[in-house]
Design a protein around this nucleic acid. Structure first.
Lengths: 322, 322
DNA sequence: GAAGGTTTGTCTAATGTCTGTAGAGAGTCT
DNA sequence: AGACTCTCTACAGACATTAGACAAACCTTC
């Protein structure tokens, strides 16, 4: 049940008009609370939306109300606008790495969205997705973060540029094969509080392009949800992104939570601080194993840096697990 | 067992509010010590967290409490009355709206990435980007949020589904025209602390498809950076996304900051709580204008709901500004 | 075309309800 | 002693109610 304000927001009819329609046409007759407040149910909302559509389509409100109350079948003319064609300018490859990274940061500082897009075009024109991401895009994002940290870049510029990169990754992800099953997937995501998701997304894309069934979980995921999801999807492996130093501890917490509940699940760390997380996890496991008698032969995997190698490492883990 | 202070800290509900909820709705009835101190157990905390989530998601406290007390299992607004009769004449084309929204949430709950993609395919097959987003995708995201707030969906599933939607929006954004100049752009973004960016991204995409020069700034942008960016890019207008009730105050802060520094800049609010932000901003401006003698003839614009109309409103503002 | 009536969205005024927060005064715990 | 808790009362601001008014748009009718 919705209040009049919620009903207005969900039906696209303003609050005064909602009352006017009720008073004049009795198009809805909402229930009332003890205090007299109107309470709309979903059926009422649907009638209001229908009325809204009819009026927008040129019907007079009175006839629209009449038709709805009579329960007539109404055919609305659908007029979909044709999709605009994509206009990708021809790439002009050739600039060396540093120039592309520099150009990316410079375009971000200038708030020049168009130039940003052209730089990204050039990045991805240099070769495969994996090569472009490794050589240009991911370094550019690191440079972007540095520029922000050093105060040369304001947050708005950082956001705008990050989002441009995110969109490129999203397009690549979407373009990759998609014969993923519903379970026995590889989970990829970030530990709680971690926010820098673009590396994890690039890795997910590369893995998907290699045909691996990846379920991308995004940033800032609590331990309990990692565990629940891994159990629910009968995950084949979990890849935890570790970018900043602050991500190390939450990442280890996630790994411990997963291992406690699902001892057979392979756990892998990826990202710039993966090494540190792997070491911390191994250390804590050692001390815990001595006390509890638990043991796992497999060392915690730390994914190597270039995307193709990281994907290969993940494939190897999955293959040995069966 | 927790004291009231611990319960407040662990549930995200302040101490006085905790007592108010107990007194008004009997949402919890904690045990008491011999001296009368409240003692909360884990089940009570869980109810309080659920209540907290529902209220944050826009439910009124009274209805949230009612739903929780009515046996926690909150029925989806779509299927409480399976066959309400053929009361409402809907457009006959393709699958009705609710089925696609339902299918989206169901696929999210099942962690079935492939099915999620197929549902998104169907959504975008129904018509133009704008129509599909208005009719299916944005309602589906609202339903997703409700499902999470009511505890039927874990965060991982919500993240995965949100990200799938984000990728679609990103692809559409990228496919849109891109003859954007470096300055005199329209800024679109979210106020500080605001996170639900998908509506703003959908709007940016629609605006871009209409040929408007949009710079998308993303979520959670501090006031100072809004101002700096608007000044730096000589922005033509600023569109502030306002989704939840908690976004209203930061959005008004952003608007005030912008207006103080750039009195000529048109400021627009968009999103589900845009109306509230517009009203709050107008009210605060009235009181401020009386005191400071400042004055602006232009009212704060509140963008209407359907994307095409929102874009048209933005175009009108830009045109009148020259 | 002008005059006059109807339709329709929006607005105002006066009033009431809902909800988060605050304070006073007294008791409890460590 | 100081931090914490209790109950009860109070209050501001957001949100709701009704009733009536009004201007623009549209339709008659002359």
């Amino acid at each position: 049940m919705y209040t009049i304000k919620q009903a207005a927001s969900r039906s696209g009819v303003s609050v005064p008009l909602l009352r006017a329609w009720e008073r004049r046409y009795r198009i809805v007759e909402p229930a009332r609370t003890a205090a007299g407040y109107r309470l709309y149910d979903e059926a009422a909302l649907e009638r209001l939306r229908t009325m809204r559509r009819l009026v927008d389509a040129g019907w007079t409100p009175s006839t629209a109300a009449e038709a709805i109350l009579a329960g007539q079948q109404i055919d609305l003319p659908v007029t979909p606008t044709p999709a605009t064609g994509s206009t990708v300018p021809g790439p002009a490859a050739g600039l060396p790495r540093d120039d592309l990274v520099e150009a990316f940061v410079a375009a971000a500082m200038a708030f020049d969205a168009d130039r940003l897009e052209r730089v990204l075009d050039r990045m991805f024109a240099t070769g495969s997705f994996e090569a472009a991401a490794d050589a240009h895009l991911l370094p550019a994002l690191v440079a972007l973060g540095d520029a922000w940290a050093s105060g040369r870049l304001n947050i708005a510029a950082e956001h705008a540029a990050s989002h441009a990169a995110l969109r490129r990754l999203a397009v690549a992800y979407q373009a990759a094969s998609r014969a993923a099953p519903a379970d026995r997937v590889v989970l990829v995501g970030m530990p709680p509080t971690a926010r820098h998701e673009l590396g994890a997304l690039a890795f997910s894309t590369a893995a998907r392009r290699a045909g691996l069934p990846v379920l991308y979980l995004g940033p800032d995921l609590p331990v309990a949800d990692w565990v629940a999801t891994a159990r629910r999807t009968a995950a084949r492996a979990a890849v935890i992104g570790v970018v900043t130093g602050a991500d190390v501890r939450p990442a280890v917490d996630v790994a411990e939570g997963l291992e406690a509940e699902l001892p057979e699940l392979p756990i892998l760390f990826g990202g710039r601080s993966a090494q540190r997380a792997g070491a911390a996890f191994a250390a804590r496991r050692e001390s815990g194993a001595a006390a509890a008698g638990a043991r796992r032969s497999r060392p915690p995997e730390v994914l190597p840096e270039p995307l193709v190698e990281a994907v290969a490492a993940l494939e190897a883990v999955i293959r040995t697990e069966g």
